[in-house]
């Protein structure tokens, strides 16, 4: 691990100012000299491995703005402060009742210890766990642009079948982000160029030719809150996560589903898929298939086929297409059958 300067700004504007001092307009947040740290469950790990090499860490845990640590659930929806810990949000009573998909996506992620440390904003910005990205002796276009992708023809069982490119197929492993993208969440930021509201669906970038550009954020921009608009029928929602073991493992495939039903007919469906894509993945095509249809095995299957119509398998991850479809079918039917 390389030595670094550690600073603890005490308010958002000080943090932004510090970041602006030590970064440039073109710096990627994950490659900049100065980087923000909150829970540290991802960044500290990657610093030890030599994958992330900031020489200045700006710790956000001392920011005095209390709204950063608050969860507000109102008739307009939810507002999560960026520094709320995953565990707090997962255990929040109203969220569990009114938006189970959010609570479950958090509860099924990581371990209790990590959930108690990791911040919500840090969680949505977590970086891929691709084995070839994590270890610096492999070629990786995301870690070292232009060096190639060792995963493409290597051991790629965990890798993405949706949203990949010839440069990168690293999976976005997060769970919470799938609930957020399904529920049309918005990310609030502050930076040297002012405050922004970014639709969650625009926050992450597919790898394309530039897999090292992972988000829409500037290096001196801080997420301050995540807002989820009210969804009156959000009680009929769930997060289904399929993995090799019962806990503490990344999804091989997951589905975030919310349904507005009229009897057995779908008025509106919200669907996102995890474990199978390079970024948080809204399955709009699947939603459209279901709209106005009776939800049964056949229509759920048709929606799953639509969700994976563009899937591109590699040698070891082809099973994720079939698994992803079955996960979505099961999630849709279980959501339909929920007693709300």
């Amino acid at each position: 691990m390389r030595p670094f300067v550690y600073e603890q700004p005490t308010d958002i504007s000080a943090a932004v100012a510090l970041a602006s001092n030590f970064t440039t307009r073109d710096d990627q947040p994950t490659r900049a000299n100065a980087q923000f740290i909150a829970g540290g469950t991802n960044l500290a790990d990657y610093m030890k491995l030599g994958v992330a090499e900031p020489n200045r860490l700006l710790d956000l845990n001392r920011l005095e703005e209390q709204k950063l640590r608050q969860i507000r659930v109102t008739e307009d929806g939810i507002r999560f402060g960026a520094l709320v810990r995953m565990g707090e949000a997962a255990d929040h009573r109203e969220i569990k009742e009114r938006y189970p998909v959010i609570a479950e996506s958090l509860h099924l992620a990581a371990s209790g210890q990590i959930r108690n440390m990791a911040s919500l904003a840090g969680n949505v910005l977590q970086r891929t766990r691709c084995e070839y990205f994590r270890e610096t002796s492999w070629a990786c276009n995301k870690r070292m642009p232009g060096s190639g992708c060792a995963a493409m023809d290597g051991f790629n069982r965990q890798h993405a079948v949706l949203g990949g490119s010839t440069a990168c197929i690293a999976t976005y492993h997060g769970d919470f982000a799938q609930a957020l993208i399904a529920l049309d969440a918005v990310v609030l930021t502050e930076g040297s160029r002012g405050a922004r509201k970014i639709p969650f669906a625009k926050l992450h970038r597919q790898p394309g030719d530039t897999p090292h550009i992972e988000t829409d954020l500037a290096a001196d921009e801080i997420i301050t809150a995540i807002e989820v608009p009210a969804l009156p029928w959000g009680r009929r929602s769930l997060y289904l996560k399929i993995r090799d073991r019962e806990s503490y493992a990344f999804a091989l495939a997951s589905a975030a589903v919310a349904l507005d039903l009229d009897g057995e007919t779908v008025r509106e469906a919200r669907i996102a898929l995890g474990g199978v894509a390079t970024v948080p993945w809204r399955a709009s095509a699947a939603e459209e298939v279901l709209q106005g249809k009776k939800l049964d095995d056949a229509s759920a299957g048709a929606a799953a086929d639509a969700a994976f119509a563009e899937a591109q398998p590699r040698q070891h991850n082809a099973f994720k297409i079939e698994l992803g479809k079955r996960t979505l079918v099961r999630a849709l039917l279980e959501t339909r059958d929920m007693k709300v």
């Binding site: 766990r129 084995e131 994590r134 051991f155 965990q158 090799d244 073991r245 019962e246 806990s247 503490y248």
Partner: peptide, 28 residues
């Protein structure tokens, strides 16, 4: 669960940590 994956092109181990080398957890 358990398997060390060998990248057959390079004869190198790929999943060299407990994130990717899975063993049962309590919940299993």
């Amino acid at each position: 669960h358990e398997a060390t994956e060998v990248d057959r092109r390079y004869a190198r181990y790929v999943n060299r940590d407990l994130q990717d080398y899975l063993v049962p957890v309590n919940a299993d």
